[in-house]
């Protein structure tokens, strides 16, 4: 029971901070903000009951620069292909065996990898994630493995507190 209470407190504090970031400080706005944070927390507890396994949001932020660089490369990659009169595409599917079990971590990985050059997760097949690729000639699997390693470095599965 106490884990629910503590989760509720932590989450409502986060939502209230989010509210203040949006609107700034003012008494009347803070009252409405309490309503907003309260209802958000209620919904959040219903949709995502607190469990010990969690992703550390703070750690995720540390990965940000790397992903920004990757998304710059990804955009450039697409632009290059789009403007090339020969339209150099070799689209196809690649199955990647993820080290993560199905769950939040794997979903986070999939989301991040969708921002990487040339890959777009589009389904799962058992332990494999199916990626659609713009160019199957590229070393997709190696890239993905490196990405997953970087992610695993920062996140310890099962010990987060966020």
């Amino acid at each position: 029971m106490s884990s629910v209470v503590s989760a509720a407190l932590v989450r409502s504090a986060i939502f209230l901070m989010f509210w203040v970031a949006l609107i700034g400080f003012s008494f009347s706005a803070l009252l409405v903000g309490c309503v907003a944070a309260g209802s958000a927390t209620w919904v959040s507890l219903r949709l995502l009951p607190p469990t010990p396994q969690r992703v550390r949001l703070g750690a995720l932020v540390l990965l940000l620069p790397r992903f920004l660089w990757q998304s710059l490369l990804a955009g450039w990659d697409v632009a290059r292909r789009a403007f090339d009169p020969r339209l150099p595409l070799r689209p196809g599917f690649v199955a990647f065996r993820s080290a993560h079990a199905p769950g939040h971590l794997r979903n986070t990985f999939a989301t991040i990898s969708s921002l990487m050059p040339g890959t777009l997760p589009c389904g799962e097949d058992g332990n494999d994630i199916i990626f659609h690729c713009l160019d199957v000639g590229q070393p997709i699997l190696e890239q993905l493995a490196a990405e997953e390693k970087a992610l695993a470095h920062v996140l310890d599965e099962g010990t987060g507190d966020g």
Binding site: G75, A79, S114
Partner: peptide, 15 residues
Amino acid sequence: DTLTRLHALTKADNL
């Protein structure tokens, strides 16, 4: 096709 177009949209437009 739709999948390759999605590449174009998500990557380039996000950037």
